[in-house]
Design a protein around this nucleic acid. Structure first.
Length: 302
DNA sequence: ACGTAGACTTGAGCGC
DNA sequence: GACACTCAAGTCTACG
């Protein structure tokens, strides 16, 4: 559930269930995901109250009394709330062959690597098939250092045009690669990078140094716009993403380019193409996102 | 310093 | 049906 809109969707769903609650106990699966010894984690967080739930880029942050308890979902991480008043079999599906929960999962299974039980009842379940996710516990004073390498946070005063333009520099890499760099704009991943480039009319392979100021300004507008739409539709579920209730998102139905190779562009009808940039699948409309940019002089600033 | 390739990990889907 | 091979919402490291 990796990108900003998916993490934000989980944050909003979880908030009313857990903020104000007290951590009672934890159960641990594969310790690989823990950046702190699990027994030390329990020792430290037991009894602490959850004061708030925030987000920075793709990180979900539980503010406790003495610590920040931080999750990164990697590629397939899921954090759901298991309501003690609902039965596990109520309203969720099992995969017909494997028996594993595919969506609306509430009960722990072999991919559930952490359960955080709350004193008032209920638990948060962290499930992660590929185990690229990570769980951190840091002292409150360490938070600035922890996030120091993250870039601009959309919808905050830090995300302003002046700061945005300064981040470009005279670099030679493809603009798509820059968008994936979390020290540029925090929270943008492979899906929303492609969507933002489409919205801004910029070819993903264009070199950063070749972009005109007007194109950078278009991108500055497009990034929050596509992220906002992702949140509005509850995130994008390609395969594994579920919200805190275990339900899928709906933004996948609204994607303009990502995963649409060979289909026609919703704007102009041209067939969407796929290429690989930074070893990541990249989709674009060759007509709406011309390689040479949209120069009136016809110059191709690649 | 900058940019890219490989590694980590599990499962699904496709072709034979 | 079994098996090989490719691909997948991310990021960290090592190398040139």
């Amino acid at each position: 559930m990796p990108e900003l809109p998916e993490v934000e969707t989980v944050r909003r769903g979880l908030e009313p269930h857990v903020v104000g609650g007290f951590i009672d106990d934890i159960e641990v699966g594969d310790p690989k995901i823990f950046q702190i010894e699990p027994h030390l984690l329990l020792e430290q967080i037991r009894g602490q109250q959850i004061l708030g739930l925030t987000r920075r880029g793709k990180y979900l942050i539980f503010e406790l009394e003495r610590h920040y308890f931080i999750f990164h979902f990697g590629m397939t991480g899921q954090l759901t709330f298991r309501d003690p008043n609902r039965s596990d079999s109520e309203g969720f599906k099992r995969h017909p062959v494997t028996g594993l929960q595919r969506t609306r999962q509430h009960a722990p299974d072999r991919h559930t690597h952490l359960q955080v039980h709350l004193r008032q009842g209920g638990a948060m379940l962290f499930r992660d098939i590929r185990k690229f996710g990570k769980v951190f516990l840091i002292e409150k004073g360490e938070v600035a250092v922890f996030f120091e390498r993250l870039g601009l946070e959309p919808w905050t005063p830090d995300y302003n045009l002046k700061a945005f333009l300064q981040k470009f520099g005279n670099r030679k890499l493809a603009i798509k690669s820059l968008l994936l760099d979390q020290s540029f704009v925090a929270g943008v991943g492979n899906i929303y990078a492609d969507e933002a480039l489409f919205a801004a009319g910029i070819h993903p392979a264009r070199k950063v140094r070749s972009l005109r100021k007007t194109e950078k300004e278009s991108l500055f507008e497009a990034i929050p716009k596509v992220l906002e739409e992702g949140i509005e539709y509850g995130g994008t579920t390609l395969r594994d993403f579920v919200n805190s209730d275990g339900n899928t998102g709906h933004h996948q139905e609204r994607l303009q380019v990502y995963g649409r190779k060979g289909e026609s562009c919703h704007r102009c009808g041209t067939l969407i193409q796929r290429m690989v940039i930074s070893q990541r699948s990249t989709c674009f409309c060759p007509d709406c996102q011309p390689r040479g940019g949209r120069s009136r002089t016809g110059k191709a600033p690649i």
